[in-house]
Design a protein around this nucleic acid. Structure first.
Lengths: 339, 339
DNA sequence: ATGAAAGCGCTAACAT
DNA sequence: ATGTTAGCGCTTTCAT
């Protein structure tokens, strides 16, 4: 390790002529310090260029001032937008962010969560985790502050930020139905994720409400990635009677669908309509611009941070659940079916 | 703080019937431990669900197994792609990532760097920092491992990963010249950044090589953001004799240019040509698809991590500098000027 | 090969 | 209001 010769509170104590516990108290914002000593300490710490050692602070029972953020991957703009929102909000506080990428690996999630509980961070933000309920139980038992972003636990015992996934999917499907489509394909997301389940449910509900049959064959697994979305679309397009419209459970898989459609030499929206979900920035940039369901990604990050900060301030805070609204964004990828 | 009741090496020691220093040695991979005791210790730690406390480990002189990554912002896909590359490579090691966002705030960079040197992380990856040389001197004096990604220091004393910015900008400009353009505007980047300076220099060099006059008025400041790129383009397009082509110093500002051009009711590439720099994923998604200079963003992250890992393994490693190649990606945003 | 003891920099009782 | 004393969980001499 590097030859760290950073000043410690002990050095400051000497410099200021006080005991080092006084320094500690002053620096960690303790009230009852005489104004004159406080000034002496501050001056000394300034002079020596003191920077607190977070490890020591946290080891001794203080806060680490770190918020752990657990994300499945960095390859989906949907995630990075949420992280961006988290970071924005965190910037206003004096917390820093420690990022754990699990690559959708459950074992890693558990390991990371353990490390975090073990003092690495003061709280945990779980973004669309695959994490299983037992693990959340551990966090709760330890009374460790955490919030779920875009995921729910079965037992409904976690503070969480979600969006109206079911309603959004319903609207997406309804939009297509309203345009006159009757054969609507669905590219499903990762079945372990609550959002995927709800979107599927919204899709089915809309079909039912408008008396359209639900066909298992019109559902293909896109797993929220563009590659799988592509493959799933191929599957649908190769059917004898392919759908005239496709609703993809997220934008990323919609991009894969786009590619598959193009390869089939079909035009969007003339030959086939497409709706996505998320409204990541690229959705407005692809050609044709994607009609999609907007999730307030940044805001999801904001709200998550606000909740966690509240929990940190009030450990006894009661369970909270925030549901943000989604919104249909009509762009250029939908039209009535061909006559 | 939460009621952490995580097992410590002391608990393992009891369980395994050895002293806790033996546990420490076993767990931190010390060689001279009898095979049988090693097994006992490992079994006990397994049984108790032991997770090492990084704070304590690092405080006691061990590594934190954390790599600090300092980025200016999360709002540019160019940055998130590099982070993605860093993360990929880090995932293969047993290091985790602690992310510091400075929002281009110099004071923060200094504070963060100090915190990091103070034990928060074992090494530092600086992505396009605005950080000033004196600060890098401190890192070097303390012999703290760091690498610069996409930035160079004046004194050329830092291990760094860069790309052929000047050559790339030259090619971009040359591409436009070859198409027949003679009035080529330039949207400049943040002048504090080396990459911005080199791209500007490449632009000028190409003009000079092909006997085109360099006009100050054809240069506008885009600062690498889409908003400023938009404003800069407005400025160029409102000139009495506007350029017939624009080279934007990065894709993000090119997107701003795109918008400005659209508002001027001009078509790309028929009325005006546009080239970007970076090749972020959106570049291929906008309409028309953007011709640009590709930087191997992921790879920049990979190489940075590889370098830092080498430095960690060999503290005496000599200075290294890696320069990755850029590449002209021709898409749909350029054409010969109107006759 | 393993145990004992010291100490990393700090916070938090416990004193006074 | 401030000084004294223990640790937090671990690595690392120094013994044996």
């Amino acid at each position: 390790m590097p030859g760290n010769k950073m000043p410690t509170i002990y050095d400051i104590a000497k410099e200021a002529g006080v005991s080092y516990s006084t320094v500690s108290r002053t620096l960690s914002g303790f009230e009852f310090v005489k104004e004159s000593t406080r000034e002496k300490v501050l001056a000394a710490s300034q002079k020596l260029g003191y920077v607190p050692n977070q490890q020591a602070r946290s080891l001794a029972g203080g806060p680490s001032n770190l918020i752990g953020v657990l994300v499945p991957t960095l390859s989906n703009e949907y995630i990075t937008q949420i992280i961006h929102g988290i970071d924005d909000e965190l910037t206003k506080s004096n917390y820093n962010l420690i990022l754990y990428t699990t690559n959708r690996h459950q074992g890693k999630e558990a390991t990371y969560a353990a490390a975090i509980m073990n003092g690495a961070a003061d709280a945990l933000l779980l973004v669309a985790p695959l994490i299983t309920d037992p693990y959340l139980d551990v966090l709760r038992e330890q009374n460790f502050p955490y919030v779920l972003i875009d995921q729910a636990d079965q037992s409904d015992q976690s503070t969480a930020v979600n969006t109206t996934n079911r309603k959004g999917a319903y609207e997406a499907t309804h939009h297509l139905i309203r345009l006159g489509h009757r054969r609507i394909g669905f590219i499903a997301g990762l079945p372990q994720l609550n959002s995927a389940i709800e979107r599927f449910s919204g899709y089915k509900a809309a079909l039912a409400d408008y008396d359209l049959p639900f066909c298992e064959e019109y559902v293909a697994l896109g797993k929220f990635t563009s590659g799988n979305g592509y493959a799933a679309a191929q599957q649908l397009l190769d059917m004898p009677t392919p759908p005239t419209a496709i609703f993809a459970a997220n934008d990323l898989s919609a991009f894969g669908v786009l590619e598959a459609i193009r390869e089939h030499r079909l035009r969007i929206p003339e030959d086939i309509s497409l709706v996505g979900f998320d409204d990541i920035p690229q959705a407005a940039m692809v050609y044709p611009k994607l009609t999609t369901i907007r999730q307030p990604l940044h805001q999801m990050g904001h709200e998550g941070v606000k909740l966690i900060l509240e929990m940190l301030a009030d450990p006894a805070m009661e369970l909270r659940r925030i549901t943000l609204d989604t919104q249909l964004i009509v762009r250029d990828s939908c039209a009535p079916p061909r006559a």
